[in-house]
Amino acid sequence: MITLENVSHEWDDFSLKNVSFSVNKGEHFIILGPTAAGKTLILETIAGFYVPRTGKILLNGKDITHIPPEKRNIGFVYQDYSLFPHMNVKENVAFGLKMQKLPKTEVEAKVQEIMDSMGISYLQNRLPSTLSGGEQQRVALARSLVIDPEILLLDEPLSALDPRTRESLREELKRIHEVRNTTTIHVTHDQDEALALADRIGVIMDGELVQVDEPYRVFNEPVTEEIATFVGVENVIQGKIISNEDGVVVVDTGKYQIRALSNLQKGEVNVFIRPENIILSKGKLESSARNSISGKISRISQLGATFRIYMNNDLSALVTKQAIEELGLKVGEKVYASFKATAIHLIKR
């Protein structure tokens, strides 16, 4: 378990202001924030390259604020992977174990084991410059995991990859986490990544940690308008796939069922629906929309020119002032929220 207590530090173009959070053992914690110079600096502070001006960092209850990086046992994977260009894949992976001065046979065995499990054994004699982005990322992960770190720090691990590789590596990260259960702190600006992988999300804005919550709460109940704008005011509903027939999936949310298009076959999912894709009506609609869910309006809030209508069915819709007047929408009113199966985005949880 790692804890930051009131950590503040200033750099030339970024500062951390009183950042406090704890990451539990085995947790995958994601720091989500807009693209900016700062997120890498948080990780570098945790890794020990900066001593914060004020505040403390505790690892398993022990104050490590002033302990040098090499004595922290914290693994680091940079966005650009930072593989040692003069060493081949195997030497890269073995580096940490060699620093521990382990016997040669033990180094060899551990290196082979991790390379096998990451599916990179066939690359072992290649130099980093000959590898693709995805391959480099696997090597960087293997290199940091082989020392069995107390904490694994991931700096935008997927953002430099092409979309297909990104998807497969996201699954890989998930699998690794499930197998090894390494406590992970992961920074990203990508919301899909955060939702797919995070146990909890900390939203950072202008150097301040503004919300720490479970993923669906960050997206459904952002505590400030700034966060809402950043996360894009999505509806996120948790559910479970109960069937998939020819790509049409039925997701059970506990309260109702949603039809969506996906090639996922089963499992827990996050269902995304953008509020602007939801149509509100007083009666059930006869339309091509596959979903029409009833609910009562619980709250109406203004967002610039539009209004966001919150319902007690965990959905919210964006409508214009004119629509509110014409339909006579007010709190307590019963409405139907309709949306097409194609407007839904499913992400495996």
């Binding site: 020990g48 090499e70 680091f76 650009d80 930072s82 003069h86 620093m99 521990q100 940091s144």
Partner: peptide
Amino acid sequence: INPRLERVARTLGASQWKSFYKITLPL
């Protein structure tokens, strides 16, 4: 040489001297 290479070496247990000797100097 990207200082990140030295930093990664540090997280992998190399002291400042070791990371200079093993990473910076050969590169």
